[in-house]
């Protein structure tokens, strides 16, 4: 043993100095922070491993065709995930399509144009939107948005753009369109608050350099401030996308819960998170349960892939920009 080779005095000194150093805090702080960081990684790893182990029956039965299968028939023990993947992607993209222009425009107003007092109040109110529980959004979706869409929005859309495949067919209220609209309201606060912060963080020197060349305020905002903040704005959009992909409750309440792939946004559909929430409690049989768990893994993978793409995108644009 190592200590037996030391004289008693040496070992006492060694213990003494260890205590002294530990009391200094560096070692303790290092170990504690390291443990926290590793712990988080371990949890993420365990989630993936657990999902993978529990989805084995489905993996063995369907393999890769689970991802491309379009039939979801629990009674016939046939499971395909594509309608759900499609629904998740369509509603999320629709939400971004609506939320990004509004959110970015609002953040430009709040950061660049509104007086600071008004900007702070408005930002607080917009951030409150993020604190509303999603079940409330679902209720508003059912009782306000769905009737509104049926009576006003969809008649106008079909009248103007009815020739487009995305606005064809009958509309019963619950649909991709309604889910996308609810989601867009839910993700807007993420875009606004993060984008506003990054716009405000653009250095004063950059604005002054542009103004000093005789540009108007808007030219400076558009050509200098926004490009300076573009990385952060894109980050806020991906944050919103991650939120939209995983949103469960509000989507379940307005999407229609029908596992079908249709081009029309007016048709009902289904999303990954919604089907897991709806069917897990009554899933009977190991193949049914493991298919739902595999769907969870797919959703997890989808968010990871999208976040990775976002990171790559940000890194490449940064390198080009500065």
């Amino acid at each position: 043993m190592a200590t037996s080779t030391l004289s008693q005095q040496d070992s006492r000194l060694a213990v003494h100095s260890l205590f002294k150093r530990a009391r200094g805090g560096d070692e303790i702080a290092y170990l504690l922070t390291l443990a926290s960081a590793v712990g988080i990684l371990v949890i993420v790893g365990l989630i993936v491993v657990e999902l993978w182990i529990n989805s084995q029956p489905t993996v063995h039965r369907f393999g890769f065709s689970f991802l491309t299968g379009t039939r979801w028939d629990p009674n016939g023990d046939h499971f395909g995930a594509l309608p759900f993947i499609y629904g998740t992607c369509v509603t999320s993209l629709l939400a971004l399509l609506i939320a990004v222009p509004f959110g970015v425009a609002a953040s430009i107003f709040l950061a660049e144009m509104a007086p600071p007092g008004i900007s702070n109040v408005l930002t607080f109110l917009i951030e409150l939107l993020a604190a509303v529980p999603s079940v409330i959004y679902g209720l508003i979706g059912i009782f306000v948005l769905v009737p509104f869409n049926r009576d006003y929005l969809v008649p106008v859309l079909t009248h103007l753009f009815g020739y487009l495949p995305i606005f064809k067919g009958d509309f019963y209220g619950v649909s991709f369109l309604s889910a996308g609209l609810v989601l867009s309201v839910m993700v807007v606060p993420f875009i606004v608050s993060v984008s506003r912060e990054v716009l405000l963080a653009v250095p004063r020197e950059q604005r002054e350099a542009s103004l000093a060349l005789g540009t108007t305020k808007w030219e400076t905002t558009w050509q200098i401030v926004i490009p300076n903040a573009s990385t952060g704005i894109i980050g806020s959009i991906f944050l919103a996308l991650a939120r939209a992909l995983g949103e469960t409750m509000a989507v379940t309440m307005v999407i229609g819960n029908t596992p079908k792939i249709t081009a029309s946004l007016l048709s009902p559909g289904y999303s990954i998170a919604a089907v897991i929430a709806n069917e897990f409690a009554e899933a009977s049989g190991s193949l049914y349960v493991s298919s739902l768990i595999f769907l969870g893994l797919v959703l997890f993978g989808l968010t990871i892939v999208i976040n990775a793409l976002a990171r790559i995108f940000v890194i490449t644009t940064q390198r080009r920009g500065s």
Partner: peptide, 25 residues
């Protein structure tokens, strides 16, 4: 400001190319 130009204490080039910095104005 077009007629009275300004150079600042801290150099503040835009995050653009050398050419685009000069061409911006």
């Amino acid at each position: 400001r077009r007629r009275v130009g300004m150079v600042f204490q801290k150099s503040n080039p835009f995050p653009k190319s050398i050419f685009d910095n000069v061409a911006y104005g």
